[in-house]
């Protein structure tokens, strides 16, 4: 969400505290202060946060009482990306089903798929990029992919935590 607040000490904390009070998770803060701004001017702050939908209205209300104006509330975005590599008989074990099982889980979406198929009967290799809204859901989506791969006798090469 994009917030507008007075450029004075304590304003940012006044905006952030209500978010944690309602159990929200602040993921990123972009705060660009204009060096030419005069005292009393307003500044724009963008905050990326996770919050239960039911709490959104009361949060906006609390922010207003703190003198913080909510300029815009953005839609949910799938921010977390993880790529894994699969090796095995990827096509012949029903690739459509593999992708569907991820997409239909609600945990993540398959955003990209790149595949190299050598000679017939040789194992093929694929790179699958998943997008998810949170690290927790991404972790569960990768668990799911790992189970599907075990079932289909595919090797999953996962990133070492945090990469790529």
């Amino acid at each position: 969400m994009k917030l507008e607040m007075k450029d004075k000490p304590g304003q940012l904390i006044a905006a952030l505290k209500p978010i944690s009070d309602v159990g929200g998770n602040i993921m990123a803060i972009i705060h660009q202060r204009d060096p030419a701004a005069a005292p009393g001017d307003t500044v724009d702050v963008q905050i990326m946060l996770e919050i239960p939908e039911t709490k959104l209205e009361s949060l906006v209300g609390t922010l207003k009482t703190q003198g913080v104006n909510v300029v815009r509330i953005g839609e949910e975005r799938l921010l977390i990306r993880r790529s894994v590599i699969l090796i095995g008989h990827i096509m012949h074990t029903d690739l459509t089903d593999t992708v569907d099982r991820i997409d239909s889980s609600g945990l993540a979406e398959v955003a990209e798929l790149g595949m190299v198929m050598p000679a017939i009967n040789e194992p093929s290799s694929a790179k699958i990029t998943l997008k998810s809204a949170s690290l927790g859901e991404m972790g569960r989506a990768i668990d799911l992919l790992r189970n599907v791969a075990t079932e289909k006798d595919l090797l999953v090469i996962e990133p070492l935590e945090g990469y790529p």
Binding site: S83, I85, I87, G88, G114, V116, P118, P123, S124, S125, A126, K127, L155, I157, P159, L160, Y163, P164
Partner: peptide, 27 residues
């Protein structure tokens, strides 16, 4: 335990596309 004996050159090339590579990691 998973070894490296079923790794393909293609898999390493796909990792390269991500500006990454593959290593056998103990954790």
């Amino acid at each position: 335990i998973t070894g490296i004996d079923s790794l393909t050159t293609d898999a390493l090339a796909l990792a390269e596309e991500l500006d990454c590579t593959i290593r056998l990691i103990g954790e």
